[in-house]
């Protein structure tokens, strides 16, 4: 029987079991790295550095995980904080000029076309709308969970998701169903 995230967290807490923590990393690395790649506008190297920081911080602060939210939601919150701290240090990531926006090549996005345009459209959204759309529409978090991750009011999350989706639909109008 496969252990749940809560079981693995308990093993890390009680026995400092690093194999159990390794299993947690293996389970969530793709989602965390994916989220950070989108937040950093597909800067793969930076996203992976931030993902490593995220998991190290999670290990050091695992006693702070009280099981009120899903483990993945807790990880997203740490990842988002790591991204924000890094973005504050490199102001150009947040206030990037759209004219300068040349999305770097992401090896995972090999198929140009709709997916390429969607990535580009996402990267054009302001950070608050992009992060809300990514968490709710891509990673399947509820508005309430996203509000906790982003540390903003629930109403703001709903507004940001709505605005972000509207902009995406407008940018990708040619791809939509007629």
């Amino acid at each position: 029987m496969e252990l749940t995230d809560a079981d693995l967290v308990a093993r890390v807490l009680v026995d400092d079991d690093q194999h159990a923590f390794g299993e947690l990393v293996r389970r969530h690395q793709s989602a965390v790295r994916g989220l950070l790649r989108q937040l950093t506008r597909t800067d793969v190297a930076l996203a992976d550095d931030l993902a490593q920081q995220t998991f190290l911080r999670a290990y050091k602060n695992i006693r702070g995980f009280r099981g009120e939210a899903r483990f993945s939601t807790w990880l997203y919150r740490i990842a988002y904080n790591c991204f924000r701290e890094d973005a504050r240090r490199r102001k150009e990531l947040v206030g990037i000029d759209e004219a300068q926006l040349q999305t770097q090549h992401d090896p995972q996005v090999a198929n140009p076309g709709l997916r390429h345009d969607l990535m580009r459209a996402l990267s054009l959204l302001p950070l608050n709308e992009r992060s809300a759309v990514l968490l709710c529409c891509q990673n399947g978090l509820s508005h309430d969970e996203a509000a906790r991750v982003l540390d903003i009011p629930l109403g703001t999350v709903k507004t940001n998701v709505l605005r972000g989706r509207e902009k995406l639909k407008r940018i990708l109008a040619d791809w939509g169903p007629n």
Partner: peptide
Amino acid sequence: WLDKELREATPYIDDAGFTARVL
């Protein structure tokens, strides 16, 4: 259509030694 595309936009990322580097 938009939700489906958003969900599928990020494929599974291979571990490729990431977990080992963290550990």
